[in-house]
């Protein structure tokens, strides 16, 4: 299933138009490049993992693609179009550290922000939006917490509120920056189930992910990054000891753990 099958509005774009395409993307902080010539195209609905060591530029790639960081050179396209034309088809889950959790706002109000993009300027969310937001909260297992101040939730719950907000965006392409950070194993499993469900509905989900052990069974394809794009492809093709060594360099401890994971194709814990 492709996104064109889901959205009649998008039938103008040919079926093989990549959902996300990065052309020769280079990003620099203070003239020091952190990402070099990243070039890839993601086709078809899929669950995509971005993995790589700390400081490899995983979050940077996400932010650059979304226009949150100035890009040195190159550009990204979504559904064959520039970002500004398709913003409402793109959902985003930022890192949890990026907001002030003491902010006076309740859970439902945060989820409602997911509907703001489609509402446009000045219009306020109405009962339809509230209904949608409640459904998204329910889907994330957060019923009954609508009127909690956001800072009173646990880290995992806060993360799920962000995911509920992304669901309320009703996007075709999602970007999630470490959505599993600070989340317990059971919740992680439940979240992955929802992401897989989104994929089955014809959506594409791009996830910056840290825990290598859960990679093989979770993602359809991977972008392995260490300041450059080391490899991109279906998980079973690129999640190999050799490519991981190239990505992670000489960090043997991790690699030993991985050798087990790769061999068995199972998470090692």
């Amino acid at each position: 299933m492709t996104s064109t099958a889901i959205r009649p509005a998008a039938t103008a774009s040919p079926v093989d138009t990549p959902i996300l395409e990065a052309h020769n993307l280079t990003v620099a902080y203070r003239e020091k490049p952190v990402l070099w010539h990243v070039d890839f195209a993601i086709r078809g609905p899929s669950l995509v993992g971005i993995i790589g060591p700390n400081g490899a530029g995983k979050s940077t790639l996400l932010k650059a693609v979304l226009g949150l960081l100035p890009v040195g050179s190159g550009h990204a396209e979504f559904f064959g179009q520039p970002l500004r034309k398709v913003r409402n088809r793109i959902g985003y889950v930022p890192q949890r550290e990026s907001v002030d959790w003491d902010f006076p706002i309740q859970v439902l109000d945060v989820v409602l922000m997911g509907t703001y993009g489609r509402l446009g300027w000045i219009r306020r969310p109405g009962s339809a939006e509230r209904e949608l937001a409640r459904n998204c909260l329910a889907k994330m297992g957060l019923e009954g917490l609508e009127h909690r101040q956001i800072g009173q939730l646990s880290g995992g719950q806060q993360q799920r509120v962000f995911l509920a907000r992304a669901l309320a965006q009703r996007a075709d392409l999602y970007f999630m920056d470490e959505p599993m950070a600070g989340v317990d194993a059971a919740t992680e499993q439940a979240i992955f189930r929802i992401l897989a469900e989104l994929r089955d509905q014809g959506k594409t989900v791009v996830v910056v992910h840290h825990d290598l052990r859960s990679v093989p069974e979770r993602f359809d394809q991977l972008l392995l990054i260490n300041q450059r794009l080391v490899a991109h492809g279906p998980t079973n093709k690129v999640f190999t000891a050799e490519i991981l060594r190239k990505t992670y360099g000489g960090r043997l401890a991790i690699l030993d753990e991985l050798a087990v994971a790769v061999k068995t194709g199972q998470p090692s814990t």
């Binding site: 913003r87 985003y92 930022p94 300027w121």
Partner: peptide, 22 residues
């Protein structure tokens, strides 16, 4: 009053606000 929702999203979560086009 007119831009209350826009202010709210920008103040609470700038990254999300920018990513969604505000």
């Amino acid at each position: 009053v007119a831009l209350f929702k826009e202010f709210q999203v920008t103040l609470f979560d700038t990254a999300f606000a920018r990513a969604t086009g505000w």
